[in-house]
Design a protein around this nucleic acid. Sequence first.
DNA 1: AATGATATTGAGATTTGTTCTCAATTATCT
DNA 2: AGATAATTGAGAACAAATCTCAATATCATT
Lengths: 151, 151
Amino acid sequence: MDYREVFINYLKKNDLQLTKSREIILDAVFETHSHFEIEELYQMLRYKNKKVSRATVYRTIPYLVEAGLVRRLRYSDQNEQYEHIYGHPNHFHLHCLNCDRVIEQNSPELEKNIEKLAKRLNFKIQDYSVSISGHCSLCEEKETERIDINE
Amino acid sequence: MDYREVFINYLKKNDLQLTKSREIILDAVFETHSHFEIEELYQMLRYKNKKVSRATVYRTIPYLVEAGLVRRLRYSDQNEQYEHIYGHPNHFHLHCLNCDRVIEQNSPELEKNIEKLAKRLNFKIQDYSVSISGHCSLCEEKETERIDINE
DNA sequence: AATGATATTGAGATTTGTTCTCAATTATCT
DNA sequence: AGATAATTGAGAACAAATCTCAATATCATT
């Protein structure tokens, strides 16, 4: 099942229609292979001359989230970021507070752990996210050097 | 070391002073034993007749976060929530999308797992959060009943 | 294809949370 | 005490997100 079908199913189930606008937004989201903000997505569509209004983009993204196609990210202190997740294995984000880089990592072990935790509580997972903030190896190195010099 | 000392150390290290305002905010944060929004905290202080401005509250919370005393939560689609973390074991949030309840859970196993993951990448953790969204056991039950009746 | 009922959209106004500004205040250092 | 620097408060400014509502598109029915 491709993302398109998933979305159509979701729409049907919720008495919503697959409109031109929603199609454009859906496709744009799956063409973008990086984290994005809604405003960015909107600007990108304008640039490509696809005609959808800002309001519609803001209205549609939550549907995609609900449909399980897109996830809202939580690693950053900045604006809301999103990523499409359908078809991608779940992964974790390590956010470097220094250089702002985001490292993505898989860990089946961690996944299993989380699933076990939820199961024990009879909690039905829809989505989960692990985000770690701190300093990446590159920045840590630099930091250590600096201290060596100064002290 | 109590939270007060931690904050004072942080302030010193960053050439900041421990002022009346900052003290009031610090104490308020550690008196509040639930998740809070900055605006709420500000209103609470007004109610208690503690004189600090909204701007100062907004300015101070990020210091507390940097000092490792407070964490910004990410489970919700709503406003930014914070919780004080100093002195509390790390815990995970399971957010029920239906009733909006937030369940807190410890899991030393999960913790170890995350630490291992970070270590492998030479990533120095400052903080991490695991948030799971879905449906809690109570809501799941109800949902199942409903289906039984209707189908 | 025409009709009426319903859902969706777009443009801009509005709301809301957060940050900024800058003069007044407070703290710190000689 | 006086000079210097940091902090604060009040409200203005900003930006992201939501709302409004008339115009448009879609659907079901005939």
